[in-house]
């Protein structure tokens, strides 16, 4: 079968030595098994994330995203841009839509892009890897490479905000999306009921408003415990980082005893597809996902 080709936008947090550096390891295994080829956009730049508006304003923010789109148009013609990071995806897709809606914004964008020797026709589609898995691959095909059922582990499927809003996955509800639970079940694991499924972790305000964000994070982790989950699984890099990293802070300040592993859906798939703990990037957890490591270690 010919591999499906996509222009890949990894994003800053997925680079070597960055906060989500254990994410792309598992994505690589998943793509290999599902005949997906991700072609990195040459010299891609930061999307501005969710906090870029403060200093960056509107046009500079659109322009930095337009640069990635133009790079993809020029070097990877005909391929959809795919990102694994919700913030990258959101900013890119928002740019595509905003520039489709306004000819004057597109003209201004191109005036700025000229400074970097580029021009945008705005013909590329911006998608999330989860969309590729669900829409282009499908749950049935996602199940095929499973060689190890992830049995005996209960997961709280934490979708979070930006994979889910404002765009979300087609056909899913904003309040109670089902696809992550379905992915969990696809690999033979159990998805617990989880009432904080789409609660905000505080996002970038984890840095600037730590107490307010840690209240959000506490609610999320507590709810996972209350519903009997062994670990949280998420599609979002910032959700993963915030919800995992700050548990020790919350324990210190509030006397809780949180130690809830937070993993990516791609790590689950990797282990189910027979990948090792290292291939799944499980060595990148601050709170070890021991139960998942044990399954990965089984022959």
């Amino acid at each position: 079968m010919a591999k499906k080709q996509y222009a890949f936008y990894p994003g800053c947090s997925s680079q070597k030595g960055a906060s989500a550096s254990n994410f792309p390891t598992s994505v690589g295994v998943v793509c290999e098994k599902l005949d997906i080829q991700l072609n990195e956009i040459p010299d891609w730049n930061c999307c501005g994330a969710s906090i870029g508006y403060g200093e960056g304003g509107e046009l500079p923010r659109l322009v930095i995203n337009a640069r990635n789109l133009a790079q993809a148009e020029n070097h990877l013609a005909g391929q959809d841009i795919v990102s694994g990071c919700p913030a990258c995806w959101l900013a890119t897709r928002e740019t595509v839509e905003r520039l489709h809606e306004s000819d004057s914004l597109l003209a201004e964008t191109n005036e700025a892009l000229k400074e970097a020797g580029l021009n945008l026709k705005n013909t590329v589609k911006a998608r999330h890897i989860v969309e590729v898995l669900i829409e282009d691959i499908g749950f049935e095909a996602m199940k095929k490479p499973v060689v190890k059922a992830i049995e005996g582990i209960k997961f709280a499927g934490y979708v979070g905000c930006q994979t889910n809003r404002p765009f979300g996955i087609a056909g899913e509800s904003f309040e109670n999306p089902q696809y992550l639970d379905r992915m969990i079940e696809t690999v033979g694991a159990e998805a617990v009921k989880f009432d904080q499924k789409v609660t905000c972790c505080g996002g970038a305000l984890a840095f600037s408003e730590p107490d307010k964000s840690q209240k959000q994070i506490r609610d999320i982790v507590e709810s996972a415990y209350d519903h009997g989950a062994d670990m949280i699984v998420t599609p979002c890099q910032l959700c993963q980082a915030n919800v995992e990293i700050y548990q020790s802070e919350i324990n210190k300040k509030q006397g809780t005893k949180f130690s809830m592993p937070v993993v990516y859906y791609s790590q689950l798939l990797t282990v189910a597809y027979g990948g090792s703990a290292k291939q799944a990037g499980l060595d990148g957890q601050l709170i070890r996902a021991e139960k998942l490591e044990r399954i990965a270690g089984k022959q």
Binding site: C12, Q15, K16, G17, A18, S19, A20, S21, N22, D43, W44, N45, L59, P60, L62, V63, I64, R67, E108, T109, E111, A112, L113, K114, E115, A116, G117, D283, G284, Q285, L286
Partner: peptide
Amino acid sequence: AKRLNPMEILGGHACKDKSGIQKMVAKA
């Protein structure tokens, strides 16, 4: 966990065309 690299203080990841990016942002 290799999710923070102390060596980034010396520069770290960067785009090749950072001057183009800066000019483009200034123009915008």
